[in-house]
Write a protein that binds this DNA or RNA. Structure first.
Lengths: 201, 201, 201, 201
DNA sequence: CATGAATGAGAATTCATTCAT
DNA sequence: CATGAATGAATTCTCATTCAT
């Protein structure tokens, strides 16, 4: 039973679903895309067959994980729209986003769930939230005017990715690269950009 | 270079080796790490078994690809050390590096060949080359003084990674993000970095 | 016995396990160690993948077969310890042992499962049983005093092995060679042995 | 070039043939039947392709090894026919036979080359030799009258086989079991045999 | 004629997914 | 409805054998 519609899941089923998602995140983080359903089920303390009762396929499981992460980020963005300092709000958003990724790097899951409609939907929400943050930052003059919401959306994961090339990165090293990239977004000393901003994803 | 081994291979074998490496790059780029040896062989127009005559295992094949790319980059870095403008040289290096990645994103291959000794060796050469470029840029005051060769090494792939989150990125879009990141490396308007630079990889 | 593990298997699974073991014995007997899992599965009327659900590897399958045979023999030895005539009991044991082997010569499997702990355990039991039989035969003066339990353990398979060098041996021919060897174990006309008895295996 | 007919092989080819046979024996002894042609060739210091110039197939190589061993034994038997003490001669023959096996256990090779005509031929010679030895022993009353040449032929390898069930057998332990078996062949205290002697193999 | 590169038919093993219990 | 047994396609890798160099 996947959809949020209809019956709201029995209590234990809902709990299993959460156990499963958590186990899957850990397993994917440790083993990469090739983490097996069997291992995930074992980690969740659930039978293999039951996994398919919750998620019709491995792809759908992955999509659900990605959805969750994106939804959390969309929430964060929404909440920060009311914050006092628009520049600080945008930086905070990027910080939360990178921190989320850092906990389990699951960026590679995104490519798998590219086509999924629920993912697209949540991503649109997130995109809207980022749009609002960027608009306010523009108005406040905190970031260069030629930078768009899409740019921010794309740069969001960069700090964590950068750090991943290291075997044992310091746990907060990504903040160093977020700082560098955020400096690149500032209006001071900005060089004209050689390529136009891309359209929304 | 890679062929540090024994005899120089028979002409046809050498050709097959190149066909194989090329096919493998394409296949990995399209299918990710899980590209199969069978598909690679088919793409190269070569029998499955022959792949294993050239590369004892899938891992070794991957290591060879990674080695080739790193060696090319090390060459580029070496050549640019003599260039007139240190700042332009560093930017040029990052441009070439990103361009190489763009053709086939194979960053994920790196993690597999982490332990390989040949890879380590070539990476050290590349690292040395980047070090020289960064030193000269520091001397010329083109980049902020708190940025190290390791930082540049890590940031090298970021522009391409950023773009990969898009389904159909404009072919040169990565230049936009390289520009933003490079602006972040400039001394003008630089914010103090929250984390110390990491040690060499 | 072998099924010392957890729950007692579902009825159908248990049946498949037996089918599998039987098919494997036949296939190994016909094709030797290089019998393929695929052929074994086909013979058992079971899918290839299912073999690995029952036995994690070919080695484990072999160990299970060996274990079964050794356990049966250990049982036989135990039962015969109470028999009236110690000499007849020992001969009976060797007869049963050889007969078991004859059905499927699987001696070569033993070398593969040398390290397996379950095998070691059952073999120790068997060894103890043989020890008891030999002790009683010694006491009764039926076998020469310089022959040990290890000797009997080692000679156990000889009659069948001898016969195997023939293309189409008469089904009970092995009894001829068991008789000859058993005569060699008798005290009458025994020549001093040129080498000391080996330590327990 | 396989046959002993026609040209007698160029000197170096003959040498390669011997190197190859020796390497193959060692490799088979160490790795069993699954020793690979590649490893054998490497051990002999010869190219893989050349192996097939000497022996048309792996089976033929094996048959050649087996042939060599059988021929040596046939020679030994022939030579011992003239010896003074018929009983001692037979024992000596069995000793040499077992010793030969012990050096490299290659009994398993025999089953592979079962059908080979050259093997059959040499085996017949060996059989004849054993027949002569047995006849003389019968005449001298050294062995029981109900034992035939075929029995001896079959029992020949038993002592080594027996010892093989041990992980690290003492190098001459087989002599212990040869003594036991030979005692079983003696007329003193012989029990009637339960099965008739088999026909020639 | 020796060499070793190429071949392709398997081998063991893994895994998402289905379905009887 | 949960369970875990069964499935079979796919994967990496091996090897006897052939054949161009």
């Amino acid at each position: 039973m996947v959809s949020s519609s209809l019956r709201p899941l029995r209590a234990d089923a809902a709990r299993n679903r959460e156990l499963l998602l958590a186990a899957a995140e850990e397993e994917f983080a440790e083993r990469g895309l090739s983490a097996s359903i069997a291992d995930i089920a074992r980690r969740a303390g659930i039978a293999k067959g039951t996994v398919f009762r919750h998620f019709a396929s491995k792809e759908e499981l992955i999509a659900s994980i990605v959805c969750g992460h994106l939804a959390t980020l969309a929430d964060v963005a929404r909440r920060l729209t009311d914050a006092g300092d628009p520049g600080a709000a945008l930086l905070e958003f990027l910080t939360v986003a990178a921190d989320q990724r850092r906990q389990h790097d699951l960026t590679f899951l995104q490519s798998v769930s590219e086509g999924d409609s629920r993912v697209t939907e949540v991503r649109d929400e997130l995109y809207a939230g980022i749009g609002a943050l960027v608009d306010r930052a523009h108005a406040a003059g905190t970031i260069r005017s030629d930078v768009t919401a899409t740019d921010v959306f794309l740069l969001m994961c960069a700090p964590v990715h950068v750090v991943e090339n290291l075997a044992n990165p310091a746990p907060e090293l990504w903040k160093r690269y977020l700082a560098i990239i955020f400096d690149g977004l500032r209006p001071e000393g900005a060089t004209p950009l050689p390529q136009p901003a891309p359209a929304r994803p």
